[in-house]
């Protein structure tokens, strides 16, 4: 699999696709969607679609594609090669969501959670297939979140396509298994030789599976923590594993959208308590005359005099 396009800039999301088989543009097609790398704290999340004419479903079975989790890495590689060789009737496309994309989406001011991110990646890929001229009739998806809601969302988004959302779809429908193999292979490749864009010198490449409960991953995270910057972009900052480590080991960083409650936050936001309006008038006016009020030219520009350096 050629991941060079993603590796050229692994800080952003990237789409990789096979050529569209000609039969897919004329015959009714089915499409499977699956993802790999949802849980790990390291590396990208990969969304994959695979499509073929409905009539050729059986040929897929002959390739013996099965749920990627039941296969060894070598078997997956082998199967992906076979899929790629069946380019006369099977097409695939991938959306590689870089760990940096995941971090920045989930941690931005208006939060964009992982489910929404996943759904949008899936929708984007289906749209890509439609735009490429694939005659979609059936779509099979392994669920993310509640299956019914997801099915409704996809059906509305793609009228005229029969959408089936099912948990464990990757072991039920060969076309979803095929998609899961594509996604998994892409993820494995990208994690195996992660190209660190940061200038870190020699990085220890022994980070294990990348899942938070893997002792190797844990040890790696502990070792690679930088007190100021935290981690390279390879790490998902939005994972609680990362955040706990940052909270306890790294320098505290305050952002202006950090949640703060109560009186202190109110004072920070310059809110006055409702009660202050009911206090005796003399008190507030006395306070005003005591404290020198800086002219708004300075306050608006956040300029203040200094008493000491």
């Amino acid at each position: 699999m050629d991941l060079s396009e993603f590796e050229a800039d692994n800080s952003v999301s990237c789409r990789l696709a096979s050529a569209i088989p000609d039969v897919c543009k004329t015959e009714d097609c089915c499409l499977g969607i699956d993802e790999a790398g949802r849980g790990p704290v390291l590396g990208p999340m990969v969304y994959g679609i695979c499509f073929c004419p409905v009539a050729k479903k059986e040929d897929l079975k002959d390739l013996k594609v099965a749920d990627s989790k039941t296969l060894t890495e070598a078997q997956r590689e082998d199967l992906f090669r076979k899929l790629d060789e069946a380019k006369s009737f099977v097409g695939w496309a991938l959306q590689v969501l870089s760990p940096n994309t995941i971090s920045t989406s989930m941690l931005q001011r208006s939060k964009y959670n992982l489910n929404a991110l996943s759904h949008d990646a899936a929708i984007g890929l289906v749209q890509f297939a439609l735009d490429s001229g694939v005659q979609l009739k059936e779509v099979f998806v392994d669920t993310v979140g509640p299956a019914e809601k997801y099915q409704e969302k996809l059906s509305q988004r793609f009228p005229g396509v029969e959408v089936t959302v099912r948990p464990k779809a990757d072991s039920l429908f060969p076309i979803v298994s095929a998609a899961s193999i594509c996604a998994k292979v892409a993820r494995d490749h990208s994690v195996k030789d992660w190209n660190f864009p940061e200038d870190l010198g020699e990085v220890d490449a022994d980070y294990g599976s990348g899942y938070p409960n893997d002792p190797k991953t844990k040890a790696w995270l502990l070792k690679e923590l930088d007190p100021v910057f935290g981690y390279p972009q390879f790490v998902r900052f939005s994972w609680s594993t990362t955040q706990t480590l940052l909270d306890s080991k790294a320098v505290t960083v305050h952002w202006d959208d950090d949640e703060e409650d109560g009186e202190k936050a109110a004072a920070r936001q310059n809110n006055t308590s409702m009660l202050s309006y009911f206090k005796a008038g003399s008190k507030t006016s006395a306070q005003q005359s005591n404290t020198h009020q800086t002219h708004r030219f300075f306050t608006e520009r956040r300029l203040q005099s200094l008493a000491t350096l």
Partner: peptide, 10 residues
Amino acid sequence: YEVKAFNEDF
């Protein structure tokens, strides 16, 4: 010269 500081939170 007078010394003023631009000072904003965060």
